[in-house]
Design a protein around this nucleic acid. Structure first.
Lengths: 205, 205, 205, 205
DNA sequence: CATGAATGAGTATTCATTCAT
DNA sequence: TATGAATGAATACTCATTCAT
């Protein structure tokens, strides 16, 4: 009961309103960037009054922060789950690639947030995102490390460097994709090539 | 002598001042981000009056833009040279990687500005950086393509996708480096691992 | 009643505020001219915050423009009515003169803004005032033309030139009045003389 | 000698430079208005450096003031000459009309200044222009008055009101002309009609 | 006298945030 | 809770003016 009512505090009376605001913010942040986004735009997109936002968030920064806290933690959770699965490491890498590229259908928005908004606010980047980013790298490196220990992956490469490179490669592909064509098929194909490239590069022979 | 140095004072103070402004901007942009940086801060750091900045740059955007153009054009020029050399394609890839990471290894602030700040403004990113970025990708893809034609690299990977992945990987490595340790040694070692990873991934068997 | 007046407070305070801003603007524009007037001054005089002005007007130009449109549209409406009346043309001319001078006789500030401030910005003059001015001239010329067709006015004068001259004459009288004495009596007397001067000048003999 | 050298101070070493600046200022003020005109524009038009203007004038206001003092005094002198001539009053009126409309070939710039710039700066208007304007009216009224005394003009009209009306009429015609067609022939024809209108309106019968 | 690079005071406008309803 | 009108702090940029050469 106590737990339930605590959960309720956030979720019951205005649960969708807070969510609606966050969803709206993700959309407009992704489209225009954090600084170019007006609070009134978020409000309009969410279908609430400007002032309402301040009933659920301390200020504009807090909205972005909440996206990271709410969203990326969830993404990280999924990532951790994939990383810890029983699948062969190669398959895990492939699934992580799909995850980050937003190819896991219902996680598209989250993927967009992490790749697009990660670098939007220097202060937030250093304060909130950097640690989460590092954690992301760490999980990824863990998979690589495991592959190395299993003798599936080469041992002469630093797992963390590989993780950073993979993250960057995916980010770069997503960036070009967002700036240009934006054809889902192309992205899916690019994901395949990228996976093959990294897995071949990593393979122990 | 006196005349010469006197003449110089005028003629040379201009580019001098432009450089001072750019250096100051790199420093404060890296510290605070593009949006949180006040023009007056750049001016104060550069030791000039606010208005002086507008004698050398059209506006604040133009200052950020110029940092890229100055820096990336230089990178692009060397890249083109390396790409067009007679070296074996593998060696060219290795040199490009070393180049991109090495050029920035003693300029951490610049690296941060280039990897982080640019993405803070969607407009700048699309207007200025995208074309340069695409050009960079094109040159890189050319080398990959050549390797594929020579039968040295696998033919089942799209050269442009590989180029984007490589660029992104380097960018990602640079980002972590700029945000964290910033030890030149680490960067050089990472360059080696990254080269090996990609070359193995690319190798035709 | 209470509810009604409460409801009113919101609905009516908006135009109320807009009017307060316009009145304040007329006062400070007349005192200092358009360019020398700070937006913050208008705000202070109107008893609103600086930003509030931008809820009712696009920008400073728009404030000046609105003064004209509000004022001149009113003048134009009455002018059209008089011009279309059944009165003898001479009497219509006399009424128009009295009207134009009379409408402003208790609004010296407005007269000064209209006669002086408008010309301070070539752009505004050409963009907003010119069309209204031309329309005014056209209506006036229509009356003159009608008089000429009736054989009451000389046919050797161009009706549009006469209209411009009459408008200018009234403007000139108003300017002197606004800059100097500002005695309503004087204005009324001047109206009579002006009417007589033009009607005699126009009379067919 | 003393007188000569005093005259020299203004006229000898840089006489044309000061004049060139004034001429340039008249041109750009007439085109863009006082406030929209940049000092650097005047300098460029005059073919001198920005700083040079400050060797001849205290500041930007002083340039406008000098135009009034130098130019309008000259115009007033010509006006006084015409007004005091032996010609019949009707002819004097006709010549004055031509003068104000800038139809006396080499006085065109001066005419433009008085009609276009008169209302540009509220402060200058009240400080410098208003008295000169009143003097202008006074001279004009003097001619009318003389005509009344001679029995040529009606005595029932206030000479000053007539003068203001005439000045305004000419100003209005010039304004419409400047805003629209700007065909010299049209202006000349309008001048004729205006003269006829006022002279008939004034004629004693 | 002349130059024009450098200065820095001055201001319109925006937009996150508040609060009376 | 919800609203959205009102607020006013904050800042990029302009341009008249200066002064070292």
């Amino acid at each position: 009961m106590a737990i339930h009512s605590a959960a309720n505090k956030r979720k019951s009376s205005a649960p969708d309103k807070r969510d609606r605001i966050l969803k709206a913010a993700i959309k407009v942040f992704a489209r225009n960037g954090f600084y170019a986004t007006r609070v009134s735009e978020i409000a309009k997109t969410a279908g609430v009054a400007d002032g309402t936002i301040y009933l659920y968030f301390k200020n504009k920064d807090d909205v972005l922060t909440s996206i990271f806290e709410d969203g990326i933690q969830r993404l990280l959770a999924i990532l951790r789950e994939v990383a810890a699965s029983d699948d062969p490491v190669e398959q895990r890498i492939t699934r992580i690639i799909a995850l980050q590229l937003g190819l896991l259908e219902d996680q598209r928005d989250l993927a967009e947030v992490i790749t697009v908004n990660l670098r939007q606010s220097s202060r937030l980047l250093k304060q909130y995102a950097a640690p989460l980013f590092m954690e992301y790298i760490e999980v990824l490196a863990g998979v690589v490390d495991e592959g190395q220990k299993q003798g599936v992956f080469r041992r002469d490469l630093n797992a963390r460097v590989v993780a950073r490179a993979l993250f960057g490669a995916l980010d770069g592909i997503l960036l070009t994709w967002a700036l240009g064509e934006a054809d889902p098929q192309a992205l899916r194909k690019a994901a395949g090539h990228c996976a093959s490239l990294f897995l071949e590069g990593l393979r122990e022979r």
